[in-house]
Design a protein around this nucleic acid. Structure first.
Lengths: 245, 245
DNA sequence: CGGAGCTTTGAACAACTTCAATTATCGTGG
DNA sequence: CCACGATAATTGAAGTTGTTCAAAGCTCCG
């Protein structure tokens, strides 16, 4: 991989420098003068994952983290009774597998919710590269930290907020992440089922469905199966800012 | 800080090399031959925090992470209605403030639940040092990752496990962390109130109290206010492994 | 000894779950 | 192209778990 000319297609397709996600994913903050080693060594392979397929499996030995390049994933584990628990949803530029660094084993499955493409980033290589390219090290730390902060916010939500707030917060979070990637901040097509959404939010699928219906009845959303339109974003936000005001 | 001889007490007291937590905290994996720069540059100051005092405040500009050297902390934020939500409890060798790296602001308060001592680790210095001392970089990544994995497990707990399981899991987790630090794995004195425990677990203080009473009645625990003794660890574990078996 | 705060326990209530039935959607094959 | 079957979503009714409100007991500390 030293000479791109010898592997033109591979190089071109794996290069972070020209990637549409360069300002969202791991290369954030890396200038053009430092991007070359990243282009050459960060991504080992880019891989297709078809809808329904598992990219990662709980308990497997940790080796790489994966960046979503296109598509949409859920990460999930199983409860003692073999019921699924969804721990997160990932879209373009987000990393999967970070939970495996500490224990040496992945702590969740990563399942594609639509046909997707991921960039495989061998972690030992990433650490080496981060060692040489300081902005890469910093962005890695930021991404790890944001994952912690995000899960912390979700914990707060799960710890005793009513269903309506959970669903509202979830949709606003999703909309914001989509907007950061150039999609509409108001119209979206959910990639997950009501059950998956409920599992993530600590609710049953019936409660999710009822809650969406109620939010629609109140004029905050327009819901048509998985097609969601945010009609009154400020109103949703107000739900979170505390109905007690 | 270049010449330890000039600041003998400071140097001795701040040195990671002789710290009882060396095998739990950030210096895990650093050999004696590499520990010197860490001794000299990792910890800026060691600081007392009295019971009830805040070390970190939500929204403050991020600069340092803090390792608990002695004592016990809670991290918390406030809901829209100004109610407290506890996002975690930290003991010796655990880091606080990691949630601030990504956003540049701390995302939670850190409040001492007993008189405590922390090591302040300026983060830009840590990144520089991690750049030079590879095992430090690796341990930082492991600690960030474990924080993610831990919160992921808590999310799973909050997402629809009954109160009994939440409390059992909480006590087992606490016991295990205490045991790793040389304390008894069966007898402990809780540092947090029922309300704080409940806030963390997404339960009211009354439910926590009732649940502890029930676990005691079932012969799994002995509860005397904040003095908890784990009577039947295997039985508690069995609660988590699914009553559906 | 007194009082504040924490914990325990009881009883009524509410939110969400569970169980159940109906409807809508999508993919597939006749 | 339409019908069929499977899957997902919606909606209703009953049931549970945990919450809320309330009161009383216990500890610790001044």
């Amino acid at each position: 991989m030293r000479s791109p000319q010898l592997h033109p297609r591979t190089f071109a397709s794996l290069a972070c420098s020209g990637c549409k996600l360069r300002e969202i994913c791991l290369p954030v903050g890396i200038g053009d003068e430092e991007i070359e080693p990243v282009d050459l060594r960060l991504v080992a392979v880019r891989r297709q994952v078809r809808r329904g397929e598992s990219l990662l499996r709980t308990g497997e030995s940790f080796g790489s983290v994966f960046a979503v390049w296109a598509g949409f994933f859920k990460t999930r584990s199983r409860t003692a009774e073999q019921r699924e628990h969804v721990s997160g949803f990932q879209m373009g530029g987000e990393l999967m597998g970070l939970d495996g660094i500490g224990s040496g084993r992945y702590e969740a499955d990563a399942v594609a919710l639509e046909n997707s493409v991921v960039c495989e980033i061998p972690f030992s290589g990433l650490e080496l590269l981060a060692h040489e390219v300081v902005p890469l090290q910093q962005q890695l730390h930021r991404m790890l930290s944001r994952e912690i902060a995000h899960k912390q916010r979700v914990m707060k939500l799960l710890g005793g907020r009513p269903a309506e707030e959970r669903v509202a917060a979830f949709l606003l979070d999703l909309a914001q992440r989509l907007a950061a990637r150039g999609y509409s901040a108001t119209a979206m097509v959910l990639r997950m089922s009501r059950r998956e959404m409920g599992s993530f939010l600590g609710l049953t699928l019936e409660t999710v469905s009822r809650t969406l219906s109620r939010l629609q009845a109140n004029g905050l959303l327009s819901v048509r199966r998985r097609q969601i339109r945010i009609v009154d974003a400020a109103g949703l936000q107000r739900l979170l800012r505390g109905s007690a005001e």
